[in-house]
Every structure is written in C-alpha cells, then in structure tokens.
Design a protein around this nucleic acid. Structure first.
Lengths: 141, 141
DNA sequence: CTAAACTTGACCATTTTAGTCAGGTATGTA
DNA sequence: TACATACCTGACTAAAATGGTCAAGTTTAG
C-alpha cells in the first residue's frame, strides 16, 4: 500500500490551485511558498498531473498552471492515479514464485485485501476537489 | 501510511493458526512451511503478537502457539497495532518545523486524511479473525 | 532579448522494509 | 539427565522506496 507525501502534496497543491486560479494561472513558485513544498518536487508532481490532463500549463512570464476540469469532476482517485499512488494492498504476482504464496491458489487473506482496496477506493472516488474546497472555506484567508 | 507485508503475514499466520489450533499448539515451523513465510521473520512477528496477548506460547517439544482469545474477539485492528502497522495517513508533528506545513494551522487537507483514517480503521475494527475463517472455508483443504 | 516560468532527466541521502544470522533459554520426552 | 524441539532476543543488512536536489534546458510575454 502506498499513500505518501507525494499524493498528499498533489492534493494540497491542487486545492491551493483551485482556490486561486479564477483569474490568472497560478505559478508553482506561489504554491511552493504558500504550501511549503519544494519547488523542484512540485515540478515533478505537476508534470504527472499534466500528463493526466488534470491541469493545463501556460508557459512564459505570468504563466503557470490552471485546472483542466471542473473541481467537481476531479476525484481523488484521478489525482492519486496521476502521481502513481496506486492504492494497492496486495501484490500477488501471477507468475512469480513469490507473492501470493508461490502457490496456484490465492493466499488465504487474498479476499480481505481485495475488500479493503475497494473500501478505500470507494472513499476516493466519492471525494472531489470541490468537496475539499467547501471543507476549507472556514479556514480560508 | 503503512500497510506492508508484516501486517499481511501476521494476518495470514493467525488465520493459519486459528485453523489448526483446536487440539495441539501449532509450531511456527509448520506455519512457516504452510504459508511460505521465513521462520525467523515469523518469530519476530509472533513475539509482538504475544506481547499484545493475541497468542500464547507453549514451550518445549510439541510446543508452539495458541490463540489467546476467541477468533471472534480478535479484530484486525488488534493485529495491526500489535505488529506496529499503525494506519496513519497524517503525521503532522505538532512541534516540528516540517509536517503540517510548518504553520500553526492545520494543512488544508488535514481533515481529509483524518476522515480517511477513520474510514480505514472502521473497516479493520469490524473485521475479526473469525470473519476470515468463514471466508476461507470453501478453499479449505 | 531576456526574465519568468515551465520541462526533463539524472542523481542521491535517508529511511523503511523484509528479512537473515547468531546466539541464546525453556521444557517435554525418552 | 540428555537432547531435540521450539520459543526468544537482538544485532545486522541488502534492496527498495521516499523525498527530495541539481543541472540544463525550452518557451514565450513583455
């Protein structure tokens, strides 16, 4: 199971972006400063977000990033997939001698992890960026 | 977030144990062979399970381990806690300059991770060893 | 034409993971 | 009482993942 700071940063950055992109594109530098995330690291993350068409980039002076979709249509699943944070609890490789016990049958807890995976993914599929925005209105500057 | 093979092995081993401990204590050697888990690694894991009173040990020849509770009373939460697999999605250290943004306020996604944590823990709290046993009856040898 | 901002890819220190290894200690059975 | 079996403990470590940094660009507004 992977759920690390890369995914967390991606979400934080996108919430930040969603708040400020009404008029102008938002530069990574600004996000970096506001959220306390290394600029270089943000670049890696946004490169992936862009490939997955979650954001658009605008080059040149006064450039930056803009959401490519309505916040309501950006689910957390999309974000995590984009930055390679697959919520995978089992890696029972079909071929490998290792994993899933090295046997033909599923390991005895296989079903459990499948269930968990679904449980978590459901959570992420039902949460959009917009939900997070609403959630944070009260703490807004 | 941590959810790795140590927790997975712990659950696998306990399910195995629960199946065979009706009459005699079960040796780690047997579990190791059946589940394909290194004996030395199992010993580490069972040491923790014992400290947390999930299993009892019986020394000497023909010794081994036995469940210390009814399978119905052993929740997955207990198991994961025992082997230090805390399901923690946020580590916003209160003091540290890093974490939670280095600021006094919660980071903008703080609530989200709290929710997720609850979501996952609920899942684990509602699943007992007994559930897993039932779940595997069909594939039983 | 130049500074701001995006873009790419290589690199790396630290931490975690998933064990191994070596040496015990306890105890049932012959 | 010997001894094999099985528990018990702690140190150690190779490999992978994490969380970045660094360097060298390209693009475009002004």
């Amino acid at each position: 199971m992977k759920l690390t700071s890369k995914g967390r940063y991606a979400v934080m950055a996108l919430v930040d972006l969603a708040r400020f992109d009404n008029i102008n594109p938002v530069s990574l530098r600004d996000i970096s400063l506001r959220q306390g995330i290394s600029l270089d690291y943000l670049e890696q993350i946004f490169s992936k977000l862009k490939k997955n068409e979650i954001v658009k980039s605008i080059r040149g002076t006064q450039g930056g990033y803009v959401l490519n979709k309505n916040p309501n249509d950006i689910k957390l699943t999309n974000i995590f997939n984009a930055v390679d944070e697959k919520v995978k609890t089992v890696q029972c490789k079909k071929e490998s001698k290792k994993g899933c016990n090295g046997k033909a049958t599923k390991c005895i807890t296989h079903n459990l992890w499948d269930e968990l995976e679904i449980h978590i993914n459901t959570f992420f599929e039902n949460k959009s960026l917009k939900d997070l925005l609403n959630n944070n209105k009260e703490t807004r500057v």
